[in-house]
């Protein structure tokens, strides 16, 4: 049968920063081909195809995005595979190889992580699941 693609609407203008991305204008409609957990979604828009940031897209059908998982305050253990330096106040700065707990996996690819007493947003793209159980 035909493949039904989900339609999303751009909520703001976005100018691409690399070759395989899509430029978006607020109000543009795109069909989603693939949703990557890292927050880049592969979309098609008329004759264009490319990656767009999920943060700039809202679903046409359900603006409340029921698919967004609930936070898990118990946390899931992940390891950072790349260092990231916070740009905004609510982000976390971490070195590569640090173990942290993921408490909320947001669709835009910026996950809420906890290390000790500190929490903040971190790019999911730089995280790898350890598969270990958290010590209680």
């Amino acid at each position: 049968g035909p493949i039904m693609l989900e339609s999303y609407r751009a909520i703001a203008d976005y100018t691409k920063s690399s070759k395989y991305e899509l430029n978006l204008k607020a109000g543009d409609l795109v069909d989603i081909v693939e949703k990557s957990q890292n927050g880049w979604w592969f979309c098609q828009c008329e004759n264009h195809r490319g990656w767009a940031p999920a943060a700039y897209l809202e679903p046409l059908d359900d603006p409340n995005e029921a698919e967004e998982p609930e936070p898990n305050y118990a946390g899931e253990l992940y390891k950072t595979i790349k260092a990231y330096t916070a740009v905004e106040k609510d982000e976390m700065t971490l070195e590569a190889g640090e173990t942290i707990e993921v408490i909320h996996k947001l669709l835009d690819g910026w996950w809420v992580v906890r290390k000790g007493e500190e929490t903040g947003y971190f790019p999911s793209m730089f995280l790898h699941k350890t598969g270990e159980k958290r010590e209680v």
């Binding site: 909520i11 703001a12 976005y14 920063s17 690399s18 395989y20 991305e21 693939e34 990557s36 890292n38 927050g39 880049w40 592969f42 195809r49 490319g50 990656w51 940031p53 999920a54 943060a55 700039y56 409340n64 995005e65 967004e68 609930e70 936070p71 990231y84 905004e88 909320h104 947001l106 835009d108 690819g109 910026w110 947003y121 790019p123 793209m125 730089f126």
Partner: peptide
């Protein structure tokens, strides 16, 4: 390949457009 996703984290939305978060 065109299906290779960007290697940089996606941008965060402008603050006024951020989704409701718990």
């Amino acid at each position: 390949s065109i299906k290779q996703p960007p290697q940089n984290p996606p941008p965060r939305p402008p603050p006024e457009l951020r989704r409701k978060r718990a």
